[in-house]
């Protein structure tokens, strides 16, 4: 257990080393939230989005969670290229603990990053709707975001392990990133996707990022009922990619 904690601690320390970069990211995200959404709220058709600003806030939280949890892949890929992985593999830790530790730390990093954004979002949604989520609702949002972060950490590690050269990794990362966000309900509701580009409706509905965003919206704004499907979708995402990444870390790193 101590070894697993140490693995998580190491990844978290590297995360904090980037604190200025993270601070930059947070403030950029917040600026996005305030400026862009305010502008969009005036431009968008009220039929489509009742109030884009409020709509966008939870979506942005999910975006931030995803981005922060996705960072671990970059580090795993770099370790692989610089053969720091050799060091990690030589440590007196059971392989599964090392692998699980890496995936879990990616998830924790995402949650840590998103916490201040979530608080801001709460303040905003409360100001607009006068509504505060109940403690169980809030816990569910946290659980959903944690699952999303865990799955994303797994996804990024799996990606990092399967593309050894940095160029390939960066390309793969961008493709996955844009596909997941473009084809989601983070920036626009599903009804818009269905109207504008129907073939994307099903992937957008299945996309765990959409489910995470929609669940957060449902719970924070009280606009819609959270469906069990969304919850299961996000949990499955965490389970599948968490396990996939951990097992491929344990398997493929020792050639």
């Amino acid at each position: 257990m101590r070894a697993l904690l140490a693995v998580v601690e190491r990844d978290f320390r590297y995360f904090l080393r980037y604190r200025w970069w993270i601070a930059g990211m947070v403030s950029m995200n917040l600026a996005d939230l305030f400026i862009m959404a305010l502008v969009y709220a005036r431009m968008t058709n009220p039929d489509v989005v009742v109030d884009y600003f409020v709509f966008f806030a939870p979506g942005l939280t999910v975006t931030a969670a995803f981005a922060a949890a996705f960072m671990i892949g970059r580090e795993v890929n770099m370790e692989l290229r610089r053969e720091v992985t050799h060091y990690m593999l030589s440590l007196p830790i059971e392989r599964w603990k090392l692998a699980a530790g890496r995936v879990i730390s990616g998830g924790i990093r995402g949650v840590a990053y998103v916490a201040p954004l979530l608080a801001t979002t709460l303040a905003i949604t409360n100001a607009y709707t006068g509504r505060l989520p109940t403690p169980p609702e809030l816990l569910t949002v946290l659980a959903v975001l944690s699952s999303l972060c865990l799955g994303t950490s797994g996804l990024s590690i799996a990606l990092a392990l399967s593309t050894k050269s940095f160029e390939k990794y960066v390309t793969a990362r961008s493709v996955v990133y844009y596909a997941l966000f473009f084809c989601s309900t983070v920036f626009y509701p599903l009804s818009l996707v269905e109207r504008v580009f129907p073939p994307l409706a099903i992937p957008a509905r299945l996309n765990p990022v959409s489910c995470g965003a929609d669940l957060s919206r449902a719970l924070l704004l009280g606009w819609a009922e959270p469906t069990p499907f969304m919850l299961v979708d996000v949990l499955l995402y965490a389970l599948v990619f968490g396990l996939l990444a951990a097992s491929s870390y344990a398997r493929t790193t020792r050639k």
Binding site: R17, E79, E83, V84, H86, Y87, S90
Partner: peptide
Amino acid sequence: VGVAFQEPKLLWV
């Protein structure tokens, strides 16, 4: 086992 590697395995930070 413990190994002191040929190439120091340190990250820059």
